[in-house]
Structure formats: structure tokens, C-alpha cells
Nucleic acid binder design. Structure first.
Lengths: 117, 117
DNA sequence: TGCACATTTGGTCGTTTTACCATACGTCAA
DNA sequence: TTGACGTATGGTAAAACGACCAAATGTGCA
């Protein structure tokens, strides 16, 4: 792996990492409906303003959102909206995992007691 | 936000977080080419076997990969291959960020010294 | 049975992350 | 200009993460 490839992987991982926190993912999803000011985001989750601000900074540094200061308020919006197109597949992973769990449960189901499957 | 919605967000964030590490993202990309045993993954990166194993465990727990033990070896494969369809958009984020940087540089460019853009 | 190999697990330690508090900053209105 | 408001930043403590080492587990072969 070249240095360049390595840097690319790190950059991409960083974006995924930025979205890999419940609060930040929630924020990104909120922004899918259009830009929001910090206050709008903050009042919808149970967190300190400074915490919200820091999460938004993480998203901004990752390049996921961009900022627009207008008057006293700061508006954030998705920079590259396709970022949320990913969610259906993420949900598919959850489904698949749930499915595995179900299958696991099936194996344990006392009815039938089938050994060979 | 209901408890259920909260749990869903957390589950999704957990998947993104799992992919949000350079080594794990690299592994996922490797597995896009088909299943690989731990040894194959380990020999391609400069890391301890135990480190590789632990990263794979994280991916497995997130539901991103699944395991198949055959003989002495353990094979991992993507459970939901669409997980990597996301990458073009992630790269678009990088591009957009790079673009911003370029624009930023443009503003600083001494040639012309244009104030109003 | 016992060894060798492939992988996992447990432990430790330094680093990073995160939430909260207090405080600073910038903008608008009076 | 001053105060109030919206947001960002700095500091701190607790928790989570990540890398490495050592040791355990499981599997196939001699």
C-alpha cells in the first residue's frame, strides 16, 4: 500500500468515523431536511450547547457539513447530500444481523429438535 | 425521539463507526474482492495478528462481515456487500473538501489580489 | 497422543473521545 | 456602547479505543 493509498483510506475512514456517533448521525439526518441552525438542533436533543457545537465541528472538519453564519445564528447544512443515501444499506446490515439472530433463535427452538440443518 | 428511534440511530452509528477506522475500512475493501482468511489480511498490513483479529471482531459484531471456519483457517467475508457502494459518495465528500481547499487557496493567491469575488 | 499452526482472548498502557462546566467571542438592538 | 443572545472554545474527568505482548483455544497431522 502506497502512502497515497494509505492517506486516502484514512481520509475516508475519518468521514465514516464522523458519522459513527449517534448524535452526529442524527444531526446529519436532520440536515437532510434542509439547513438548520445550532439552536434548532440543540433543542431537539438532550445535550449541552457546547456538546452540540463540538459535534458539528467534527462533522464540518470531516467535510460532511458546511456552515453559513447569518446574523446571530449559524446554519449548518449537508455539503454532499448523498451521504445519507448510504442509510438503506446500513439498515440492510441491521436487518441481516437481526435475521441472523432470528436464525440463531430458530436453531435453539425446542420444537422439532432437528440436529442436521 | 422515542426509545426505538434512539436505538435505531445508535445501531446505525455503530456500523459506521466500525467502518470508521483505517484498518477496518481497508479490510472491508479487501473483502469486496471475495472472502479472505485472517492470515491473508494480516500479511498485507503491518500489524499484529491479535490486532487484526480484534478489528475483525469489531466488524463482525457490527454485522458487516461474517465468519466461516474451515479447517485451521478462518475466512471472513462481507455480509452485505452494498456497504461499499457508499465509497463513491465518501470520495465525493473528499473531493468537495479538496475543492473548498482549492477555493481557499485561490482567495489567497497573490496574483491579481482580487478582493471581491 | 502430542506437536505445529491459525486464530482468539486477556492484560496493560498510552491516546483519543466525549460530556459537562465555565468562559470567551461575535452580532444585533436599545 | 452596552447588554443580551447565539455559538464557540478551553479545561477537566471518566470512559472508550487501539496496539502490543503473552497465553489460551481449536484444528489437523505425524
Amino acid at each position: 500500500m502506497t502512502e497515497k493509498e494509505k492517506a486516502l483510506i484514512e481520509a475516508k475512514a475519518n468521514i465514516l468515523k464522523a458519522l459513527g456517533h449517534p448524535t452526529r448521525l442524527w444531526m446529519a439526518e436532520q440536515l437532510a431536511g434542509g439547513e438548520k441552525c445550532v439552536c434548532e438542533l440543540a433543542e431537539n436533543i438532550n445535550a449541552d450547547f457546547s456538546t452540540v457545537s463540538k459535534h458539528l465541528t467534527v462533522l464540518k472538519q470531516a467535510g460532511v457539513v458546511e456552515v453559513d453564519k447569518r446574523g446571530k445564528q449559524v446554519y449548518y447544512r449537508l455539503k454532499v447530500p448523498c451521504i445519507l443515501n448510504f442509510m438503506p444499506c446500513v439498515e440492510a446490515v441491521l436487518q441481516a444481523t437481526a435475521q441472523s439472530h432470528i436464525e440463531l433463535m430458530d436453531q435453539k427452538r425446542p420444537i422439532g429438535q432437528i440436529d442436521a440443518v
